[in-house]
Amino acid sequence: MRILFISDLHYTHETFHGIYQGLAWSWLLDIVYRTKPDLILSAGDWDKGISREEFEELLREVPVLSIYGNHENMEVLKQLRNPLLENKPVLVEDGEVVEVEGVRISGISGVLSKTGKPKRGVPRKTEEEYIEICKKLRPVNFLLIHEAPAIPEFEGIIKLNPHTKTVLECLKRVKADLILGGHIHETPYTIHLGEFKYLRVDSSQRHRAYGVIDTEERRVEVFIDKKKVKEFEY
């Protein structure tokens, strides 16, 4: 199976990190047309510009499974279902395992905060809630997360606060072939091949990064727009 992995599309008709994001949806459709995936996986942050009409047009072409991040139109995301995937919801519940052509996919949505209270209509989690979900995760091929882990590749790029350390401890115990994440925008992508394998991409118009995964060859190609910049096996 061929999977297109994106995160942080940030589709709005405004600027994000100083860059206009109104072209994000047409850019995504172009990527889908060129890569011809069997499935799209997203680590969240579609943002408030998504509409049910545009998304359902995409879903008629290719199934999508996604978690939510911290910039979302939750009302739209919760309504979306996959007509090409037995009408399964687009939004993967925390810890739920969805199987597609023998490939097992799960996720943990959102970001962490001290109180766990929603912000801008998007739920958040406390560290305790995150750990409890992590303990219940079953072995999967792909795990989608949004919050960043405290891995060496992020040192000097982001603040490795207690939240990122909690995520790191979670990922150390997870049994997943590959963990797919987002949330960080300082660089186009991050690859960690230590005790667990992790790929993070920024698919916003700032970096236009994404991954193409071949599940038969267990190979990942990382692209920035139309240029392949990295390749690794998982």
Rank of each mutant, 00 (worst) to 15 (best):
K88V: 14
K78S: 10
N161C: 06
T164S: 15
F142R: 03
M74W: 03
W46N: 01
L180G: 03
G182D: 04
L80W: 02
R124S: 01
L39E: 05
R173V: 07
L143Q: 13
I67D: 03
K175A: 09
E75G: 03
H207L: 11
A43G: 13
R219E: 12
R2F: 02
L178Y: 13
V103P: 10
E132H: 14
K48R: 14
F142Q: 08
V90L: 06
K165G: 03
F196I: 03
Y33Q: 13
K48D: 07
I157G: 08
E96A: 13
P162C: 06
T187H: 11
D225R: 04
L112A: 06
P188Q: 10
H192Y: 15
L58G: 07
L9T: 01
G121L: 00
K78P: 01
H146P: 08
G181S: 12
T164P: 01
L84N: 08
V98L: 13
D225K: 12
K165Q: 10
K136I: 02
T35Q: 15
I158R: 13
K114E: 15
E75R: 15
L29T: 09
I213F: 07
F16I: 07
V97W: 08
D94H: 12
G110W: 03
D38P: 13
V64C: 09
R52H: 05
R124P: 01
K230W: 05
T190A: 04
P118D: 06
L9D: 05
C134S: 14
F223N: 09
K227Q: 02
K230V: 00
E132W: 09
